[in-house]
Design a protein around this nucleic acid. Structure first.
Lengths: 240, 240
DNA sequence: CGACTTCTTGAGGAACGTCAACCGCAGTGG
DNA sequence: CCACTGCGGTTGACGTTCCTCAAGAAGTCG
């Protein structure tokens, strides 16, 4: 009840501006809000709810192995629908916050009912899912056959597309890398050392600039794009 | 018109038995069918439609690079909803048939209208999407940090879960590997040679049996499961 | 039979993971 | 104020791994 009131009272500022959630009808929005609970998360916190909308920050589905290997198999940014409801699979992984975040958790049963009742809510879920599937296909492509340098270029472009990471326009496209190097490594399936070396190399070659440790400016966009699309395959082992 | 009649006349046998599509109401089914076109595909054929249901066979989203590297970023099996409608992303990839397949293509606009009108169709899409997202998260986990041997074990379990691959019960769980070694390689992000060596090794260690080149019997399920969950990390480079 | 494809096996090298050490920074406590 | 600790990031050395290449085996199709 209290949560409901908190959320409903300031309904307008809940969803990030320009997020597609603002396209819902007022009725659907308030219906969803009635099932919602806002959760504030610190970096590293695990999220118990598997359904909701990320208002700000970064969440990730983390999978760990007993020997310490760790993968971040999805990243969620602000405005994303988070839906991990299908848990019948073996190792589902944990939903964790990668930085301080605000998560609008939705009640699973009530939301399911609203999906059935409101076509626009169902359409929103379908649109979000389609977007996430496309994103994951890209990510799988990166992981499957790209070298670390290419992966890094690709993931930098991905971050650059995120809302809220762009710095002042005067900086001509510099943006804030929203997650740590270690997490980037776990996301692209390499070790932190490799990420560090790859970033150095991109910088040495003049493709990117690192004004601050957590900021990136892509100085040679065509070359980086080419790299992200597979411009640097593994070199031949043939002698001469 | 002709296609519609063909499909609608034999409506019952269209969807694979036990597929969740049979749970739709009769009205919704016939509504969908009215927008449907059955397409027969040979191995290697590219599918132009980006929306439909796979009735039999195997489809895959293939991404290629100019230097010949190739990745299969998703596999679809019978009963799966195929939806590649979001194409605003850079490199979308091609939907191709990995073996002879029957694909029930749906008209995008009409289907969108039916999704908005029929809650059970919308629910079906949402359920399928959720399932696919979970599958892709698992696959990303494999690709991100597993060794080829572990990947192979994991993908063998994935195939074993597919409908229609199980052989006679007398064979005690042997199943038909539905795709070629080369395609397995592209799916788990390694080279065909590595797949070949990994299969040999699993066989040598007595974890699996290969009665026919395209069949697998997992003889030591617990050990294989352990392997698939990360039981064989890279060995240390430390000298004792 | 030859031409072709797919799979297999082997040899060798580049690359990335492993380990270790160091740096800078933030927090803590004296 | 400084020492201590812990953490994230960086750099270097080294070795396993898996990719590259090549060649042969096995199956398919004409």
């Amino acid at each position: 009840m209290q949560d409901f009131q908190n959320v409903a009272r300031e309904l307008a500022p809940v969803f990030p501006t320009h997020s597609r959630w603002n396209g819902l009808t007022a009725a659907s929005t308030s219906a969803l809000m009635r099932t919602a609970t806002m959760i504030n998360l610190n970096c590293g916190d695990q999220v118990n709810s598997g359904l909701g909308v990320l208002i700000s920050g970064v969440l990730s589905v983390e999978k760990e192995l007993s020997d310490g290997r760790r993968a971040l198999c999805v990243l969620f940014h602000e405005g994303d629908l988070v839906d991990l409801r299908r848990t019948e699979r073996a190792r589902q992984g944990n939903l964790i916050a990668i930085k301080e975040s605000e998560f609008l958790a939705l009640d699973e049963d009530q939301t399911a009912a609203w999906i059935a009742k409101c076509p626009d809510i169902a359409g929103m879920f379908i649109a979000e899912f389609g977007e996430h599937l496309a994103r994951m296909r890209d990510h799988v492509t990166d992981l499957a056959f790209k070298t670390p340098l290419e992966c890094l270029a690709s993931v930098l472009f991905e971050f650059r597309r995120w809302p809220g990471v762009r710095l002042g326009v005067l900086q001509s496209g510099a943006f804030r890398v929203p997650i740590s190097r270690g997490n980037i490594a776990d996301y692209i399936g390499v070790k932190p050392e490799t990420v560090s070396r790859a970033i150095r190399q991109l910088e040495r070659e003049g493709l990117i600039d690192i004004p601050e440790p957590d900021q990136v400016l892509i100085t040679n966009i065509p070359a980086m794009r080419c790299l992200a699309n597979g411009g640097r395959p593994r070199q031949s082992t043939r002698k001469n």
